[in-house]
């Protein structure tokens, strides 16, 4: 019997539905609602102290360590468009994970989405910020020289675009028409920008300092974290908030914010009905430590503000008090509705 299958039979007994503990009824209901909606892949520290990749059900049950390598740090798993594979980076044990530099570091790896059959795709620091093409046969990379589209089979560069100031977190839209990344615009850094994948034409998505953009499944909207510069709370530093906007930059809307916490790692479910994010009192998302608590929320509850949050509530007077459910400690989650592990 294959190891992964054997683990799956035992694990529901061992770790079934742990996130139901100590949460209020509305959070418990939310967790039950998503329990069978596929799998979440995420990075977290394992018992051996290194970062490993994990799978769990969206209610945080059935947690599986799918790399379990004490000699390496594995981070930033992303499902391929068909959910058959995951792409991630692997670094030597003990390498600090920097929240802004991780895409430059380590080896690019691709494995089955269960973690089986890991393949090292490039040398250390090769294929920086690699992410999937819409059909999963290519990767999009962000090098100092240019944005590059690389064929996975031959590892040849098929197309190149000038970076135009984009310097990290580059992702290809599911419809193949756009790239989104974080870059410099008109003398300002930390702006989310969208690039036309055919012409290379750039448009600004955010006018406040923002980062960690990612696509909605419709390729029309972008989720990102932003920390508007005009906040007074937190000694003027402010708090990082989770937003989404049209790819054109129009219709920016708050998803979740809470004074006392910085919100990062935003990603939406495959049907855009739910959103995952992390919240941590320290800025940066927790990559340098042990990640951050990952939360789940319904998109229909956006905009939601928790806590007293007087400045945020003044800024967003129509915000709701939507339900959020704590899942686990982690970083950079990614969600598929595919049944990548067959349970009995």
């Amino acid at each position: 019997m294959h190891t992964v299958v054997r683990i799956c039979i035992i694990l529901p007994v061992l770790v079934g539905a742990p996130a139901l503990w100590a949460q209020d009824q509305s959070a418990t209901d939310l967790l039950r609602e998503v329990a069978l909606k596929g799998w979440i892949a995420y990075s977290a520290r394992s018992e051996n102290g290194t970062w490993d990749l994990f799978l769990s059900r969206p209610d945080a049950s059935h947690r599986l360590n799918i790399t379990n390598t004490p000699d390496y740090e594995e981070i930033a798993a992303r499902f391929s468009p068909d959910s058959a594979k995951i792409l991630y980076r692997r670094l030597p044990k003990g390498t600090p994970i920097n929240h802004d530099l991780w895409g430059f570091e380590g080896e690019l790896c691709i494995s089955d989405s269960t973690g089986a059959n890991p393949q090292i795709i490039g040398k250390d620091k090769e294929f920086p910020w690699a992410s999937w093409s819409p059909d999963g046969t290519q990767i999009l990379c962000l090098t100092r020289k240019a944005i590059q589209i690389v064929d996975l089979a031959t590892k040849k560069v098929l197309r190149e675009f000038p970076r135009q100031g984009i310097y990290q977190q580059l992702f290809w839209s599911p419809d193949g028409k756009w790239f989104v990344g974080t870059g410099n615009v008109q003398g300002k850094n930390w702006r989310v920008v969208r690039m036309n994948a055919e012409t290379g034409e750039l448009n600004v998505v955010t006018k406040t300092q923002s980062c960690t953009p990612d696509w909605f499944p419709d390729s029309l909207r972008i989720i990102y974290s932003t920390r508007p510069e005009d906040q007074k709370s937190n000694n003027g530093y402010g708090w990082t908030q989770l937003f989404f906007a049209d790819g054109s930059g129009e219709n920016p809307q708050l998803i979740y914010a809470e004074e006392g916490y910085h919100i990062y790692s935003g990603t939406v479910s495959p049907d855009a009905q739910y959103v995952l994010f992390t919240k941590l009192p320290q800025d940066g998302g927790g990559a340098e430590g042990s990640g951050a608590p990952v939360y789940l929320m319904r998109m229909s509850d956006a905009p939601t503000i928790h806590g007293e949050s007087p400045e945020l509530r003044s800024r967003y007077p129509d915000a709701k008090n939507g339900t959020i459910a704590h899942l686990f400690q982690g970083w950079e989650p990614c969600w598929t509705y595919a049944e990548i592990i067959k349970e009995k």
């Binding site: 962000l142 090098t143 100092r144 020289k145 970076r163 100031g165 310097y167 990290q168 410099n184 008109q186 003398g187 300002k188 850094n189 930390w190």
Partner: peptide, 15 residues
């Protein structure tokens, strides 16, 4: 600079 540095650039002279 963009050919040699891939990171945030604060340029108060950009306008």
């Amino acid at each position: 600079i963009e050919d040699y540095f891939m990171g945030g650039i604060m340029n108060p002279y950009s306008e």
